[in-house]
Design a protein around this nucleic acid. Sequence first.
DNA 1: CTTGTTCTGTACCGATCGATACGAAACTAG
DNA 2: CTAGTTTCGTATCGATCGGTACAGAACAAG
Lengths: 195, 195
Amino acid sequence: MSGGRPRAFDPETALDRALEVFWRQGYEGTSLSDLTAAMDINRPSLYAAFGNKEQLFRKVLDRYFTSPGAFAAEALEAPTAQTVIERLLLGAVELTTGRDTPHGCLSVNSVHACGPDSEPIRQEVIARRMAGEAALRHRFEQAADLPADTDPRVLARLVYTVTDGIAVQAASGCTRDQLHQVADLALRSLFQLPS
Amino acid sequence: MSGGRPRAFDPETALDRALEVFWRQGYEGTSLSDLTAAMDINRPSLYAAFGNKEQLFRKVLDRYFTSPGAFAAEALEAPTAQTVIERLLLGAVELTTGRDTPHGCLSVNSVHACGPDSEPIRQEVIARRMAGEAALRHRFEQAADLPADTDPRVLARLVYTVTDGIAVQAASGCTRDQLHQVADLALRSLFQLPS
DNA sequence: CTTGTTCTGTACCGATCGATACGAAACTAG
DNA sequence: CTAGTTTCGTATCGATCGGTACAGAACAAG
């Protein structure tokens, strides 16, 4: 039992740097050289601390959902279905159009991870998306402010369809203000509110 | 002036094969080996006939929008704004969940083209998307079946947000039937139709 | 000190990336 | 037939990919 040479970097901040790069460039678009440059560590240090590129990305995904993407889980605690949806749509706009973060959504980007070698990553992201959708459906099943003929599954899927679309729009240059208008219109349509 | 050796492949079918591969694997995820294998031609033949990978992708984009994605332009000719949106949403579902085509949308995939080297591709796709959105806005400006307080820009953006979301959902495994339900609910919400 | 352990830094691995050089093959024109 | 032209097929280019071997540096324990 012994000390050994102390590591010269903080794993958490390094993980944040990796999140930055993966968020902006996607899984396949990010090379190990990009990662080591952004994390300011050498290649062997990266492998020793985080496994390999795929394992690093999974840890980055965890960090993404627990900190910038935490609003999605927290939104489910809103009192009514309407406020849940409101928080989800507005939260998606904020997340995907941040001033200090890349535009778009890491999760949505990763669904389109391209090559055959990144298929496990795709599957993992898809599994997380389905879990989120199922949670939203359960939340809707317990809501009292939805019409009786509303299918919670379809509504949950529509809401995630809109948030996914928001992410795509943000990734393709739509501004935060523009997307706020879109989210507002979507909410007014869903709940037939006066404009 | 002379003949020369005739080419042993049909450029149009080769382009269709390339579309297939790019559609499924994205721009960066598709290697030249993937392309030559799918198009059943050699590397120099590809370069002689289509330029390079980027130019080939642009021609594939043209083909995509003029044949599987043609519904988007045609939908604008529908008589009312409501039917325009109807055709767009249902067309998006059909396009992105085809039996004999990859799931998802080539255009939406390419927005997330990852690395810094594929930035020109991203910009081209974004430009085409903005052109489509502008066309839809103009169509809405001339529509008689929209409430007077409707902002055509916001509505156009919302419609494309939903079609983008449909593409993401399709890419992540959602079935055609499920997305039809989503599109139906979106339409009923937008136009406050009885279910 | 020495020993053991862990991390750092360089230099490198085989594989694959997009892109080409070059000669043989297949055609037309004369 | 020969000459000219275009495509095909192989073999290869330099660069980069993800991943590692290995030696030296920095610590703790004795």
